[in-house]
Amino acid sequence: MKDEANAARPAARSSPPPVRGSEPIIRLFHVGKMWPGDPPALCDVSLDVAKGELLFLTGASGAGKSTLLKLVFGQEAPTHGQVIVGGRSVSRLNRDGIARLRRGIGVVFQDFKLLPTRTVFDNVAVTLEVRGDPPEAIRRRVTSLLRQVGLPDKAESLPARLSGGEQQRVALARALAGDPAILLADEPTGNLDPERSEEIMEMFGAAHARGTTVIVATHDRHLLARHARRVLVLEKGRVVGDGLLDRAAASSA
């Protein structure tokens, strides 16, 4: 695992690399995250992610990728430092503020986090229901998304009846449903075969092309080689590399 990460590691930089948009939508200032009794999950991480940027986080298991994503959408609060998303400090938001923040962020969780007692349709629709969208608009949007992810005939199925790959696609459809400004994905292709992985990555690419800021956490070397631009490498909670990936080098490694 470590070799894979090293193969894709760009040179460590003292300042963030140039990015597509000029204004950072996500900023981390000397962020640390610790749980009592455990080694630090993140140590002094500073990071700017511009609007519309596509960023890959990589590193071995336990390097802090998932923790970093959780800090961005407010599932965890930093122990030190500041996490600024859309100009607002996440740790200063109240519970309703956190909810509003999350409505602008689509997340594909590693374990999907689908509602087990609700249908595929309802699982995708819930993102729009919490925003209070009109029922007819929700129906159209969800139907369209299920078609995009190749599950139009599974709308009334429960998640337990779907394969891992299908559940992954439902999770992606839910993340995209609100047309979020930021899309976070934690190992989004971990359960998929190469063909399905490519389909999923194409969807991330399409969202990125529409201007969505996309952060993908993965330790899949092939995925990085094919799709990565800016890559942030984490090791034991510290940033050990941040820069544009030399795809040719990564592919040959």
């Binding site: 519970r95 999350r102 819930v126």
Partner: peptide, 16 residues
């Protein structure tokens, strides 16, 4: 509880 956590994660307020 899992359902409640998921609803919060997709942006539901406590009231919702």
């Amino acid at each position: 509880r899992e359902e409640i956590e998921i609803l919060r994660l997709v942006g539901a307020t406590d009231t919702f």
